[in-house]
Amino acid sequence: MYLGLQHLHSGVAYLVLLALTIVIIYALIGSLSGREFTEKDRKIAMIAFILSHIQLLAGLILYFVSPLGFSLLSGGGAMSDAASRLTALEHPLINIVAIVLITIGYSRAKKLEASRAKFRSIYMMYAIGFVLILSRIPWGNWLS
């Protein structure tokens, strides 16, 4: 189960990054071109929204079943080691904040009236979330 969760969390990460990139560019173009926000636009934003939440769920489950997650905090030495601190605290905390921002951007876009404001809500909040996610990816573990 643990190995399967690791693969799910790593595999979905690629999909999340790709989906966020596409949605941010798509919403930015929509805002700059002044076109109407349609149901298709909402569904495209929803794909990145859903994928990011699947990633969060897989990550939270992995955090509590992994020997590298929550258990590192109880050992006491995680804060002195940068790699342990990233795994035990920074990666999960910053990514939760990123998913919250993506959720706020999507939810606000559903409530706003003007098309430009809807696009802006999506591309701004998704972009901030995207940057936060990129800042806390454990690149050394991920790419090896």
Rank of each mutant, 00 (worst) to 15 (best):
3 L>H: 06
3 L>Q: 15
5 L>R: 05
7 H>T: 12
7 H>G: 11
7 H>F: 12
7 H>I: 08
8 L>E: 09
9 H>Q: 10
9 H>K: 11
9 H>E: 07
10 S>P: 02
10 S>C: 00
11 G>F: 13
12 V>A: 11
12 V>S: 15
12 V>W: 11
14 Y>C: 04
15 L>T: 00
15 L>A: 13
15 L>N: 02
15 L>Y: 12
17 L>T: 11
17 L>H: 00
20 L>H: 00
21 T>M: 13
22 I>A: 01
24 I>C: 09
25 I>N: 07
26 Y>G: 14
26 Y>H: 10
28 L>H: 15
29 I>W: 07
29 I>K: 02
33 S>G: 12
34 G>K: 01
34 G>Q: 01
35 R>I: 13
37 F>Y: 15
37 F>W: 07
37 F>A: 05
38 T>C: 13
38 T>W: 14
38 T>L: 06
39 E>W: 12
39 E>Y: 08
40 K>S: 03
40 K>R: 14
41 D>P: 03
44 I>W: 05
47 I>M: 12
47 I>Y: 15
50 I>P: 01
50 I>S: 02
51 L>I: 06
51 L>P: 05
51 L>S: 03
52 S>T: 12
54 I>Y: 00
57 L>G: 08
57 L>T: 08
58 A>Y: 03
60 L>D: 08
60 L>S: 11
61 I>C: 10
62 L>H: 09
63 Y>E: 04
65 V>N: 13
65 V>T: 10
69 G>I: 06
71 S>V: 12
71 S>I: 09
71 S>F: 07
73 L>A: 11
74 S>Y: 02
74 S>F: 13
76 G>C: 06
77 G>F: 00
77 G>R: 02
77 G>D: 11
77 G>M: 03
79 M>Y: 15
81 D>V: 14
81 D>S: 12
82 A>Y: 11
82 A>F: 04
84 S>Y: 15
85 R>D: 09
85 R>M: 05
85 R>S: 06
88 A>V: 03
89 L>A: 07
89 L>K: 04
90 E>C: 04
91 H>I: 00
92 P>T: 01
93 L>T: 15
95 N>R: 14
98 A>D: 00
99 I>K: 06
100 V>Q: 09
101 L>I: 14
101 L>H: 08
101 L>E: 02
102 I>H: 14
104 I>P: 09
104 I>E: 05
106 Y>M: 09
106 Y>Q: 11
106 Y>T: 06
107 S>W: 03
107 S>E: 10
108 R>P: 08
113 E>R: 13
114 A>F: 04
115 S>M: 01
116 R>G: 08
117 A>G: 08
117 A>T: 11
118 K>F: 05
118 K>R: 13
119 F>G: 11
119 F>V: 14
120 R>C: 03
123 Y>H: 09
124 M>V: 13
124 M>G: 10
125 M>F: 07
126 Y>A: 10
128 I>K: 10
128 I>E: 04
129 G>V: 01
129 G>M: 06
130 F>V: 04
131 V>Y: 01
133 I>F: 13
133 I>P: 04
133 I>M: 14
134 L>A: 08
134 L>S: 07
134 L>C: 02
134 L>R: 05
135 S>L: 04
135 S>M: 03
136 R>L: 12
137 I>M: 00
138 P>W: 04
138 P>S: 12
139 W>T: 14
139 W>P: 11
141 N>V: 00
142 W>A: 05
142 W>P: 07
143 L>I: 15
144 S>E: 04
144 S>Y: 05
144 S>Q: 10
